[in-house]
Structures are given as structure tokens and as C-alpha cells.
Simulated scan of single mutants.
Amino acid sequence: MDDDDWRAPAVPLAVDLVILTLRESRLHVLLVERGVDPYRGALALPGGFLSHLEEGLLDAARRELAEEADLAEVPYLEELGVYGDPGRDPRGRVVSVAFLAIAPRLPEPVAGTDAAAASWRPVEPLLSGEEELAFDHRRIVADGVEHARRKLEHSALATAFCDATFTIAELQQVYEAVWGIRLDPRNFYRKVQGARGFIVAAGPARRTDGGRPARLFRAGPLHSLYPPMVRSAHAVHEGAPIDE
């Protein structure tokens, strides 16, 4: 083909948002109920097409998040991946750039534009296929959850989901919620204490429900964990006893 005859293929570009948070000690993802076709009435990730050719991808992601769920104050959004398999959208070939955020204490979403509703939904029924999602959004959610789980292995992100002071048991609950596994308390305690700068002592002990005092900690100056908190080293197999 002559270069003068070549034309770039017209492929629409979109963004999708995987916003994760903890609610009631479970990992939740932000979903909207689609108010337009295709998949009218189905659950989906917030997102949409770029509004014009000059709009940046991150600008489009933040705009869609504000328009579809009224969440304009989500902190850092990072690029998760590009999804462009043929057939992922019944309207034709669409390439989507997905963005991810995992943040504590996010507010209730408010639906807008082409979303009929917006809500936080637990990730487990979505990952298992018990609840259906539009397009290829289950795959994108799964990729986002796995990325978040890896972040907890290699960074001090988990402390952001705790109060200013917390017990190691409360920190463990964050890891269990995000990783979706039960952890051995003794092994977890040793690993956390062995990561110098991850957490630091903070004041007197607090009485627990069992009546025993529990030491309080706060987030330390360490941001990256080395060696990492590898999930497989902490997991307790179903039915196995947990040391008390």
C-alpha cells in the first residue's frame, strides 16, 4: 500500500477505574449500574470514552470518576493496564486504559451521568463469578485486586488503613481482608516486627476484648518492605490450627 493511501484505523479509546477500599473488614470495589446500552442494568466499573482528542488519559479517568460516582478526591491513580481484545465491547473494537487506586476511608459514591446507581461491592463474589460484570470488567477487577495484593507484599500501604495507632492484630486484619486468606498470628507478628521501620511503638498498651493488654503501634518511616511480606509464607490452610 502506498504511504499516501494509509489511514490510521479508527479505534475508540476509553478509560476504566478500579477503585478499592476496605469496608467492614472486607475488600470492596467501586461499581456502577449501567443506565444505558449496552449492558443496561448490569454492574460495571466506572469509566467511559475520552471526551475529546486533547483530553489526557488521567484527566479522563478523574472526570469519569467524578461524573459517574462523584468521587473527585480519590488520591493517587496509577495505570493498571491496557485492554483491547476484539469482542470485549459489543459496539465494536474499543481499547481501554484501566487505572487503579486503593485508598482508605473513601465516601459513599453518588451516581451520575449514564450510571443508574453507584456502590461499593465486595470483591469475592465478583472474582468467583457469583456476580456478573459487564464487558471484560471481571478480568480488570481481578488484575486490580492482584496488583493491590502485591502492593501489600512490597510496601507499607497496609498501615494507611489503620487508625493513627493500632495493634498488630488490627494490622493483620487489613492483610487478611486484602489478601483474602487467613494468617498465622505468630508468624505475622514476627515478620512485622522484623521489618525495621515498618511500624514503631506508640504509647501504652490497650485493653483488648479478651482482657489482655495489646501493644500499640503507628506507621513507621519505611515505605518499601524488604524482604517482602510474601503471602504464601503467612497463609494458614483451611482447617489447619492457628497458634494463639
Results as ranks from 00 to 15, higher is better:
Asn187Tyr: 07
Arg231Gln: 13
Gly239Ser: 10
Met229Asp: 03
His223Trp: 13
Leu20Arg: 03
His223Lys: 15
Gly92Cys: 02
Arg150Val: 15
Ser155Asn: 10
Val18Pro: 05
Leu13Pro: 00
Phe99Met: 05
Asp2Ala: 10
His137Ser: 11
Tyr226Asn: 12
Leu30Phe: 10
Arg91Met: 10
Ile140Leu: 02
Ala205Gly: 00
Pro213His: 05
Val200Gly: 01
Asp184Thr: 06
Arg190Gly: 02
Glu132Gly: 10
Leu133Val: 11
Val178Pro: 01
Leu71Pro: 04
Asp70Trp: 07
Ala10Thr: 15
Gly47Gln: 03
Val200Leu: 07
Val95Asp: 02
Leu71Gln: 06
Arg206Val: 14
Pro221Gly: 01
Ala169Cys: 07
Asp114Glu: 13
Asp3Thr: 10
Asp136Ala: 08
Arg121Phe: 15
Asp114Gly: 00
Pro227Arg: 07
Gly92Phe: 09
Ala235Lys: 11
Arg62Ile: 11
Leu53Glu: 15
Pro125Lys: 06
Phe49Ser: 06
Glu153Phe: 00
Leu43His: 07
Arg218Glu: 11
Gly84Val: 08
His234Lys: 03
Val15Phe: 01
Leu100Ala: 03
Thr159Met: 04
Arg139Glu: 15
Ala66Lys: 12
Val29Lys: 02
Arg138Tyr: 03
Glu132Ser: 13
Leu71Tyr: 06
Asp114Ile: 08
Val15Met: 10
